[in-house]
Design a protein around this nucleic acid. Structure first.
Length: 582
RNA sequence: GUGCCCGUAGCUCAGUCGGACAGAGCGCGGGGCUCCGGACCCCGAGGUCGGGGGUUCGAAUCCCCCCGGGCACGCCA
């Protein structure tokens, strides 16, 4: 609809003033008295044409009011207000009804390759709510991009290298050795020291330790003397889940062996958690693989050749400050190992080489300070300025009975994503995470989300869908056949003023989806859906559908079916189910 | 200290590349089917858009200052 109005205005501009303008807005006026759509075009032209806005608006309105697409075009206080004609609306609605998806879809992406990297949580513990929020936003955005014909790759970057992973191994080994009757006391005390300072304290660490013990008994109580390769074989033969890390890597010491085992288990859990929410990744990208493949070496060499690298205090530094960062950053430590940053540049270098037209990273907002250095390094590699987009997801703060629950993976006291999913259900979780703009911190009381789940807006929306499904079932019972879009479409013409508001709302989904995708603001879907559901419930409570005159009934059925399709499509893009019954 | 984000109804939040009288959900008060699903609908109360300046025909929205909250400032990831 907006596109149509925009085009009409542009051609009017050309005919009336022989000029062009791109950056004007077409929006739905807040006040329905102001029509279906309006534009601020006249304000923008006032200076250029040296005329007052209202005069321009009036001229545009006069010019366009003859157009049969519009019932009326009026100039008011400089705005041009459009009312769409009944005929246009009905024709559009028929098209929508006959094939909803096709009507809504547009080829905006033209098959361009887009990578969306999201979640990418360290595999050192279960996912928590913040990760869940990122997962929902990333996945919904991916669905939207796919809908508009982008070739989307969903990707999870696994931080499976470095210190945190080693700490995970230490934590598990420590918990394991706690249960040993006889053990290497000296090593145990050393592990204990590290564990107490910065170990992972969650219950899940103990569980992994118990699982380890179940498979290998006491054979790791003296880690230095243990036959690692035999223990590894033992684990591989006894553990039921796929063990990618354990199979792939020959451990250098017991901590590595335990780390890899823990990684396999935790990643499997993460995968399951995400699957519970309907989130699946196309690529799980290993940070460790970047070290092994030599890509980091290759990258560092490249950056050196370009003259962006220098040595200081025994470390290698990247001149990111030349490209907008606050200061230069270390990419290789004085001990010769690469930093996380070096690996991350290599990862993005790899994305570049894979030929993505655009990459979108969904990051926790605590990483915002990290963006300038990544952007800086990408400039060094010659990437387009807007090639990388970063979406920040603000933290989810958790409350229980009004009290904040401080969440820390190391301290181990957190409500996991799975816990929430099991109690509230994936639909409510996904919907709720999309009720706030993602860069706004989200506070909520778990108890409230759990207890008041039936009052969650998701049910309000789903109820509208189920209600319509109920009506359609009832019709089938009464008349012995399902109402088909093809049969109903002709009756759209019979719709009256009473139905117009609802009909327009359905049609506006098309504009809504396009804008939501382009602005990368998937949360707006929930607001649209709540409005549509409200409008339908309102209509339902004031107008009978079944049992009225045939023409009336069938036209109203057509409208209801359209609402159902709109809800189903929008919910589907959010990964939320549209139930036939509740 | 420096940088970024946030501050809108009792609560949780939309609205922010300026636009027409400031919105939703929940909560609160009152009301509504002998009829298609009452997980619904209708009416109402509730606001200095954190505060103060400025720019503009027009500011919740842009700029400056201040207050309050969060995050980031590592040879951690």
């Amino acid at each position: 609809m907006k596109e149509l109005v925009k085009q009409k205005l542009q051609s009017a501009l050309l005919e009336l003033y022989n000029t062009a303008e791109e950056n004007f807005k077409i929006e739905k006026p807040k006040d329905p008295e102001h029509g279906d759509l309006s534009t601020n075009l006249a304000f923008l032209l006032a200076r250029k044409l040296k005329k007052p806005p209202q005069k321009i608006a009036q001229e545009l309105a006069n010019h366009l009011s003859k157009d049969p697409h519009f019932k009326s075009v009026e100039a008011l206080k400089g705005f041009v207000n459009f009312r769409l004609s009944q005929e246009l609306l009905k024709e559009e609605f028929k098209k929508f009804l006959l094939s909803p998806e096709e009507y809504l879809r547009e080829d905006i992406g033209k098959g361009k390759k887009v990578q969306v990297e999201f979640v990418s949580a360290n595999p050192t513990g279960p996912l928590h709510l913040g990760h869940g929020r990122g997962a929902v936003v990333g996945d919904t955005l991916s669905r939207l991009l796919e809908f508009f014909n982008y070739d989307v790759v969903r990707e999870y970057y696994i931080n499976d290298a470095g210190r945190q992973v080693r700490l995970l191994g230490i934590s598990v080994l420590y918990r394991y050795m706690e249960e040993c009757q006889r053990k290497d006391e000296e090593l145990f005390r050393e592990l204990e020291r590290t564990f107490n300072e910065e170990g992972y304290r969650g219950e899940y660490v103990k569980e992994i330790a118990r699982r380890l013990r179940k498979h290998v008994g006491d054979s790791l109580c003296f880690p230095a003397r243990a036959e690692l390769s035999r223990i590894r074989e033992e684990l591989i033969s006894k553990e039921e889940i796929p063990l990618n890390y354990l199979k792939k890597y020959e451990p250098g010491d017991a901590i590595e062996l335990v780390s890899d085992f823990a990684l396999d288990i935790l990643l499997e859990e993460i995968r399951k958690d995400l699957l519970l929410m309907g989130v699946e990744f196309d690529v799980w990208f290993s940070e460790r693989s970047l070290h092994e493949s030599g890509l980091i070496d290759e990258l560092v060499k490249l950056l050196k050749e370009k003259g962006y690298v220098y040595e200081k205090d025994g470390a290698l530094w990247l001149k990111t400050s030349q490209f907008g960062d606050d200061k230069d950053r270390v990419i290789r430590r004085s001990d010769g190992t690469y930093t996380y940053f070096a690996a991350d540049i290599a990862y993005h270098y790899d994305k570049l080489k894979r030929g993505f037209d655009k990459v979108i990273n969904v990051w926790g907002a605590d990483h915002h300070g990290y963006i300038p250095r990544v952007k800086a390094s990408l400039k060094m590699l010659g990437a387009r300025e807007d090639w990388l987009e970063v979406l920040l997801i603000q933290m989810v703060k958790l409350f229980r009975g009004g009290k904040e629950v401080k969440m820390s993976k190391r301290a181990g006291n957190f409500v996991t994503l799975r816990e929430l999913l099991e109690e509230v259900g994936p639909d409510a979780v996904r919907f709720t995470f999309l009720t706030k703009r993602s860069d706004t911190p989200l506070d909520f009381d778990v108890e409230k989300v759990k207890e008041k789940s039936s009052e969650n807006p998701v049910f309000y929306v789903q109820y509208a869908h189920a209600r319509i499904s109920g009506i359609l079932r009832e019709y089938e019972k009464l008349y012995g056949k399902k109402p088909s879009p093809l049969e109903l479409a002709p009756y759209v013409s019979e719709l009256t003023q009473a139905e117009e508001k609802l009909l327009k709302l359905v049609l506006f989904l098309k504009d809504e989806l396009r804008e939501i995708t382009q602005k990368r603001e998937p949360h707006l879907l929930t607001y649209y859906l709540i409005e549509l559901a409200r409008e339908f419930h309102h209509y339902y409570n004031h107008n009978r559908i079944l049992g009225t005159q045939e023409k009336t009934m069938l036209s109203r059925l057509a409208l209801a079916l359209g609402v159902k399709e709109a809800i189903k499509t929008a919910l589907g893009l959010m990964g939320v189910s549209a139930p036939e019954r509740m």
